[in-house]
Design a protein around this nucleic acid. Structure first.
Length: 672
DNA sequence: CACTCCGGGATTTTT
DNA sequence: TCCCGGAGTG
């Protein structure tokens, strides 16, 4: 995803952009300019093919990708002709459809969107257990079922053991509870539109006429449900372009299925396949290694990346004595390399399999006072203070949203505790109404002390008053008033030390500022309502103040590095058991028989992030309990087929720092 | 009986 | 880092 290169589209790219006679699959190798193809194709559709921008939708998986695409389209198309263009995530399109078709789906337009935490809590309630492992397992099972278009009944039928049967039962009541809350989960945002368009001819035609051309990014990451939705919207005209790379499919564990790539060919016999094989990112040697590695996977489509860049630097493989030694050694090499190349810290990335592996590298970098950025990090919208506010927003929009009610009514503390809520919950359950509705009912008065009733109703009336205002005033101002009325700032200072309270309050202010700004801006000139804002917020995870400018080494998981590129890459911990990860062997009774292949693709993704230099390392021993366990180099290192002269000799370990330095010097001489 | 403290272990993550 | 579980303490 580099900035648009100065050269014109290459022949394959041009073909992909211009082909409009039917469905089109673009197999875009790593670094082959896929974003460029999508953005140019949008421009082509508008400027050459006579499509109105409002009839075109480009779908991505992340907000970040959508934003980047949006920006790059803006560089190609004048603002007027891009007006009404849809560039958003699958889920954002889903919200739009669910909102407009709410009635047909049995939902109020003010439905809530539950995030993973809410759903976790919900499942916890339903199976009345505190076993987090179990809850998580059920949660992922439900998600996989939904993504695979498996209904609760089917899940029950397919259940092979009691555990699965239990999960299937919970799946059913989970859906029922969501309906009662007037809420949907993330998976429903795709599933509900897909089911609706399947059964409702009129709605289907309407959306088919509205979105007359679809472009799908990262097609290899789509799940069955998303493919279904795509097919339904594309309809018989099948006017779409899917862009993806089967070699970079690394999300099978999340429900994505390469089956969708295969099926594209069977579902659309007239499918045009265009391969983008010229890579604009990496040196030839890096591509050779990547090609050799991935050649070990069975091929869906034959594809071989090449580049016009020179051979470039030798790929380095090194072995370290321990994970600490590996970190130290990587940091030393990085410093020397940076000095030698006069590079910036931000030219370097250290990539690993699991988040926990970052720790030793953080320590080593800190010791050397090297600035670094840790990818991932907790999402802005997951912070407690932000979730508090969002709970209020959700409650203002949808009073049936019980999870939001519970969070709001207990934050800040207003003398309503678990006992009161339990009584309220029992009563609401009997009456089959939401907690909010129940609190105003006379029948509740026999169940709770007068004092508790009073507290609850005070809260209820408070929400009603704000809601009344929220319907006629801008969201940002209502929110300011709300914060003041809650004395939320004082609440933060009450429960935290000054420093954290201050930063939390700052987050709240950032959030309200952001919300106010969102409340104004709108390409069509009309401000989004509180309802729209609240539903949008649910889909945004990261506040996109990506500090891309900072000169700092990037630390990232291989998964999170997908789509990014760095001049110099260190792949660390490349050992059997870690990559491929243990438990990825094919032999056990996993649902997916292709785990090793996915691990290999993960390695492939790692290698192809590198532009100029690649450094692969592994540890001979790694801390395991009290002592060190022996480890082996990953089979993937061998599969890279590095010839003589392409690899520097593995560094011997253990070494003293002195030895290491002299070794390093030798290494440097060799490379120069 | 409950709470805290320490040590060990760890897939991957978005919406 | 974070989370979980076991042991030790009040």
């Amino acid at each position: 995803m580099s900035a648009a290169p100065p050269h014109p589209l290459n022949p394959a790219q041009r073909e992909a952009v211009r082909y409009l006679d039917g469905p089109c699959l673009v197999l875009a190798g790593a670094g082959s300019g896929k974003t460029r193809v999508i953005t140019h194709k949008i421009a082509h559709l508008v400027q050459e093919a006579g499509y109105a921008a409002r009839n075109i939708a480009a779908l991505t998986f992340t907000n970040k990708a959508a934003q980047e695409m949006q920006e790059r389209v803006a560089q190609l198309l004048p603002k007027e002709s891009a007006s009404g263009l849809t560039v958003c995530t699958f889920h954002a399109l889903g919200v739009r459809i669910v909102r407009e078709e709410a009635k047909a789906l049995g939902l109020k337009p003010s439905f809530s969107i539950m995030d993973a935490d809410d759903c976790f809590g919900l499942i916890q309630q339903l199976c009345a257990t505190t076993d987090k492992q179990l809850i998580r397992r059920i949660q992922t099972a439900i998600s996989l079922w939904k993504n695979g278009l498996v209904a609760p009944d089917d899940a029950n039928h397919l259940a092979s053991d009691e555990n699965e049967a239990q999960a299937a039962r919970i799946y059913r009541s989970y859906n029922a509870t969501l309906s009662a809350y007037q809420a949907v989960d993330f998976d429903d945002l795709i599933r509900l539109p897909a089911e609706l368009l399947q059964r409702d001819d009129e709605a289907r035609t309407r959306w088919q006429n509205r979105l007359r051309y679809l472009l799908v990014d990262e097609y290899q990451d789509t799940n069955a449900c998303q493919y279904q939705l795509l097919k339904l919207i594309a309809g018989p005209r099948a006017a779409f372009t899917a862009v993806g790379d089967d070699d970079q499919a690394i999300y099978a564990w999340r429900g994505a299925t390469l089956e969708n790539l295969r099926q594209l060919q069977t579902d659309f016999a007239q499918l045009k396949v265009v391969k983008l094989e010229q890579n604009y990112r990496s040196s030839a040697r890096i591509l050779q290694a990547a090609n050799s590695l991935i050649a070990n996977n069975p091929k869906l489509f034959e594809k071989k990346l090449w580049s016009e860049h020179g051979m470039g630097d030798a790929i380095q493989i090194s072995m370290a004595d321990s994970d600490e030694h590996e970190a130290e050694s990587v940091v030393i090499k990085l410093q020397a390399h940076k000095f030698e190349r006069r590079a910036k810290f931000s030219d370097y990335a250290i990539l690993y399999r699991g988040n926990h592996q970052a720790r030793v590298f953080e320590q080593a970098l800190r010791k050397e006072k090297i600035p670094y950025l840790l990818s991932g990090g907790q999402s802005f919208f997951d912070r407690a203070e932000i979730r508090d506010i969002i709970a209020y927003l959700r409650l203002l929009v949808n009073q049936d949203d019980d999870p939001a009610f519970i969070r709001a009514v207990t934050t800040p503390k207003r003398g309503i505790g678990s006992a009161t809520l339990e009584a309220l919950g029992t009563y609401a359950g009997e009456r089959e109404v939401s907690l909010f509705t129940a609190l105003f009912e006379r029948g509740l008065e026999s169940r709770l002390a007068a004092r508790q009733i009073e507290l609850l109703r005070t809260f209820g009336e408070f929400i009603n008053r704000i809601e009344w205002r929220a319907q006629r005033e801008p969201a940002g101002e209502v929110l300011d008033e709300l914060m003041k009325a809650l004395d939320y700032e004082a609440y933060l200072y009450d429960g935290n030390d000054d420093r954290t309270a201050q930063s939390k309050w700052q987050n709240v202010l950032d959030f309200t500022t952001w919300l106010k700004q969102k409340g104004e801006e709108d390409e069509n000139g009309k401000a989004p309502t509180l309802l729209q804002l609240t539903q949008t917020i649910a889909l945004i995870s990261m506040l996109d103040k990506q500090e891309g400018e900072q000169d700092a080494v990037r630390l990232s998981t291989l998964h999170a590095a997908k789509g990014l590129e760095y001049p110099h890459v260190f792949l660390v911990g490349i050992e059997e058991g870690l990559l491929p990860h243990k438990g990825s062997e094919d032999d056990d009774l996993t649902l997916l028989p292709t785990r090793i292949e996915e691990e290999r693709r993960l390695m492939y993704v790692g290698i192809t992030r590198a532009q100029r230099s690649l450094h692969v390392s592994w540890c001979k021993k790694r801390k395991r309990g009290r002592d060190m366990a022996a480890r082996e180099a990953s089979r993937f290192i061998g599969e890279m087929q590095l010839g003589e002269g392409q690899v520097n000799a593995p560094e011997e370990a253990p070494m003293s720092s002195k030895e290491r330095l002299s070794n390093l010097k030798a290494l440097l001489n060799k490379t120069m």
